[in-house]
Simulated assay, not measured.
Amino acid sequence: MTTRALSFNAAAAQYAANRPSYPPLLLDTLEELAGRPLKNAQVADIGAGTGIATSLLHARGARVTAVEPGDGMAAEFRRNNPGIPLVRGDGNHLPLATASADFITYAQAWHWTDPAKAGPEARRVLREGGALALWWNTSDHSAEWVAAQDARLHDFFQHDHIRPAGTGNQRGGHPWTDVPGLDFTDREIPHTREVSLATHLANLGSHSAFLVLGEERTREFMTREHELLSELFPDGTVEESYVVHLRLALN
């Protein structure tokens, strides 16, 4: 695992408290494309983190097992989801039996794998006709203030030669996410949430680009961003706009 991938372990509580969840339409779309319900399906949620997606899958009635490599994230997962099985491992070497899953899901996690290893592993663990689902919550740049903030992030991180979160290969529809032998179908699902300005900035700070940046530089950006957004949202409430990029393929 890279230093950037492991950076979440020290910020697991911040991640769990401030990251956005996913809209019900995402799971509806997943079931539609897979041609079967999640209820009673065997689901492996890989790179489960603190369990944001896992808990939704469980609530939908799936018999879900989480797979998570990080110590801090796994500890936070167990605090939040004591009744859901968790095994330690990563997508490149799944600690799961062959042909044991109806669904394998990667929520915000596929980009931390080596697709040349993770692809064959997913196909090994999936049953015939099972579904591999990859998705990412990305900021919706059709909102003017979101696009402006993204531009500030890019300008800020240029100095440190760090690519900010939500860019490049983390979006759906890229060849980088392809798996030999699988044909993906893509969907985009918009959603919003209203949060306090403090939650918005804490969510931003839970992304790996800031976690590897260091406290001083992170504080520099967040102080400036707080001033700008306080003028834009004087009541202290921010409406965050997202698009979930979903890619699903049947084995």
Results as ranks from 00 to 15, higher is better:
A99N: 07
T50M: 05
E215P: 06
P20H: 12
A5E: 06
V212A: 04
Y242K: 07
I84W: 02
R88Y: 02
L248T: 10
A44W: 09
S100K: 08
H245K: 04
A118P: 06
H141I: 12
A41T: 13
G49I: 06
R152S: 13
Y106A: 12
H200F: 14
V67P: 14
G129Q: 02
L96D: 12
W145I: 13
V43K: 14
R193L: 15
L228F: 06
A202T: 04
V87Y: 01
H93S: 08
S196D: 13
T199I: 11
Y15Q: 01
L246A: 02
A118E: 06
D114K: 04
V244L: 08
T237E: 12
L213R: 05
Y106I: 01
A131H: 00
P175V: 10
F233A: 13
D140F: 10
A10Q: 10
R187K: 12
H200I: 03
L229Q: 08
A249D: 07
S208A: 05
A66C: 09
E225G: 11
I189Q: 12
Y15N: 03
E231N: 12
I162Y: 02
A122R: 00
T54V: 04
R79Y: 02
A143Q: 14
I189W: 14
G89N: 14
D102L: 03
F184R: 00
E144T: 13
Q170D: 13
E32Q: 15
H161L: 01
E194Y: 06
F103W: 02
P115D: 08
R60W: 14
A44K: 05
F156E: 06
D235N: 15
P85R: 04
E239K: 15
A107M: 08
H141K: 09
A209W: 02
H161N: 07
A118K: 06
E121I: 02
G181Q: 07
D186L: 09
V43C: 15
R19Q: 12
T50A: 09
L182W: 04
T218H: 02
T2G: 01
Y106W: 13
N18R: 02
N92Q: 05
E194A: 14
G70D: 07
R127H: 00
H226C: 05
D114E: 10
L38K: 06
L232E: 15
G236K: 05
E121T: 01
V243R: 09
P37Y: 03
L228Q: 07
S196T: 15
H58C: 10
Q14N: 09
E216P: 03
E220D: 15
T50H: 04
T50K: 03
E216S: 13
D150G: 08
W112K: 01
P23D: 02
S139D: 10
